[in-house]
Each structure stands twice: as structure tokens, then as C-alpha cells.
């Protein structure tokens, strides 16, 4: 195995995984139970991504500048502040805390 072999093998496998999902027939997902699962799947995946993006540092859980940033973001979303303003504010909060500590 050279580095090129590893790079190409892993790239092709990862692309294959993406393609696989598109080969599942669409009508399987139209009945009520699968449709509900698919809807809740979005919620679960987003919640999992938020959780990891906030607390995970590699395979460790940490409490750092991201936590207050996400709390500020949650408050701003609750107050119906526009999306992009919230995202920029969250970045500024985290960057600010990191600059000061």
C-alpha cells in the first residue's frame, strides 16, 4: 500500500456509501411509519451534530468557549433574531472568549 492507494481506496469507498442511499426505492419511504421516521431522522441527526459540534473534542467531551456561544445562539433564536446574525454572533462569542482566556 502506498499513500496513493490509501487515498484512492478510502475516497472510492466513501463515494460509494453516498451512492448507495440513492439506490433505495423512493416508494418505501412514502408510508406513514417510514415517513415519520424520516422526519424524526432529521431532528435526531441535527441534534446529534449540534451536540458533537458543541461538546466533542476528538473523542473527548469538553466544556469550552463553544458552550456559551451556543447558549447565546439559542437565546437569540428564541428571540427570532435572523439566522445569519445569530451565526456570526456565536462565532464572535467563541472567538472573544478564546482571545481573552
Amino acid at each position: 500500500m502506498t499513500t496513493w492507494h490509501v487515498v484512492l481506496l478510502a475516497s472510492i469507498l466513501c463515494f460509494g456509501l453516498k451512492t448507495l442511499g440513492y439506490l433505495v426505492p423512493a416508494r418505501l419511504l412514502e408510508r406513514p411509519t417510514p415517513a415519520r421516521m424520516v422526519d424524526l431522522l432529521t431532528v435526531a441527526l441535527l441534534a446529534a451534530l449540534i451536540s458533537l459540534q458543541t461538546f466533542a473534542n476528538g473523542q473527548e467531551l469538553t466544556l469550552d468557549a463553544r458552550v456559551p456561544a451556543v447558549v447565546v445562539a439559542a437565546v437569540m433564536f428564541a428571540l427570532r433574531v435572523p439566522f445569519i446574525v445569530v451565526v456570526v454572533s456565536a462565532a464572535l462569542v467563541a472567538a472573544g472568549i478564546r482571545a481573552l482566556t
Binding site: 431532528v43 441535527l46 449540534i50 439566522f83 462565532a91 467563541a94 472567538a95 482571545a99
Partner: peptide, 21 residues
């Protein structure tokens, strides 16, 4: 991450989740 981009990504995902709750 010194520029807070990781927190921005978390906030962006949160913004997508919010209306679905």
C-alpha cells in the same frame, strides 16, 4: 477555531433544528 468557526457551525445547525421542535 480561534476565529470561532466551530461555534458558528454549531449555531447554524441549531438554527436549522429550532423550527422543527
Amino acid at each position: 477555531s480561534a476565529y470561532g468557526l466551530d461555534a458558528a457551525a454549531a449555531a447554524a445547525f441549531l438554527g436549522l433544528l429550532w423550527p422543527r421542535l
